[in-house]
Amino acid sequence: MKVVAFERNLQGTGASRRLRNSGKTPGIVYGADKDTQLVELDHNALWHALKKEVFHSSILDLEVGGKAQQVLLRDVQYHPFKQMVLHVDFQRVDSKKKLHTKVPLHFLNQETNPAVKLSGAVISHVINELEVECLPGDLPEFIEVDLANIEAGQTMHAKDITLPKGVELVAHLEAENPVLASATIPAAVVSDASAGGAAAGEGETPAA
């Protein structure tokens, strides 16, 4: 995904305020053993880009002054009540160095899961992204989580899914193995099933 930015020379609260008043958003680009670069971006274009999942989880081609560099979006500061982006941070990536970043999870086959269709189970998504490490060229836009076979009462953990080639969980998640999703039978469904069973029992004729 390509992003166009422009160099800015002025910094400070006053300069940033003037930028925002003119429809621009200040930002910085840092990392890869290079000097921090001050940039500005068109606010409306940035606002719409931030609504796309891919903008948050993919390597971006950031063009500044006609020169492109690969970056990750690292931080966004929003106005507390206005629809306004106050500041953005981009981190340069080195194609030869592993990076740590969060990747969104896409949950699949929940509607066709037998526990959902036949037993009234409800599948809850406990977390919606995973922090992974990989080389920039291996970074996936998202990670698929197949919920086709999770049964009622079961949970699915991070280590239960197959990660794309070259992608690993960061160390603390490897140790914690957090829950990604869980399948439960709602109390109302259990209660209805019990009541139905009791009613069926009452209708039976005692053996002579």
Rank of each mutant, 00 (worst) to 15 (best):
K98Q: 13
I161P: 10
T13R: 15
V145W: 00
V190R: 06
R74F: 09
G203K: 14
P26N: 04
A199V: 08
M156N: 10
L46M: 05
V93N: 09
T205M: 11
T36R: 11
V54F: 06
L108P: 06
L180W: 11
G120C: 08
G31P: 06
D75P: 07
G120F: 09
F6Q: 15
Q83A: 12
V39R: 08
S22G: 10
T155E: 14
Q69D: 05
A152Q: 15
L130I: 01
Q37V: 15
H87C: 04
P206V: 05
T162F: 07
D61P: 02
H48A: 01
N44L: 09
F142Q: 09
H125F: 13
T184K: 15
P178N: 11
E129S: 01
V76C: 04
K2R: 06
D160H: 12
C134A: 12
A187W: 09
P104K: 03
E144C: 03
R20P: 09
L169A: 11
V122C: 09
T25W: 00
L46W: 06
A49I: 01
L139M: 09
V126E: 09
L72Q: 12
N113C: 04
F142I: 00
L60A: 04
A5W: 00
K51V: 03
P80W: 14
A158P: 13
L10V: 00
K34V: 07
H157D: 06
D33W: 03
V122D: 01
A200F: 11
S124T: 15
V190C: 01
L108D: 08
L60R: 03
I150S: 10
A195Y: 06
Q83F: 11
H100F: 02
Q77A: 09
A68S: 10
N21E: 13
D75W: 02
H79D: 14
A195V: 10
V170W: 08
G203P: 05
G166K: 11
A181Q: 05
Q11D: 10
G166D: 08
R17K: 14
E144D: 12
N128W: 03
G31K: 02
A193V: 08
G196W: 10
K82Q: 14
E176R: 15
K97M: 04
F107C: 04
E129Y: 03
F81A: 02
D160R: 02
R20H: 10
A175T: 14
Q37R: 14
E151R: 15
A195C: 00
S95F: 00
R8F: 07
Q110C: 04
M1K: 03
G23I: 03
S16R: 13
A158E: 06
R92V: 07
R8H: 06
I161C: 08
V132K: 01
G65V: 08
V116T: 02
S191L: 12
V88Q: 05
P136C: 06
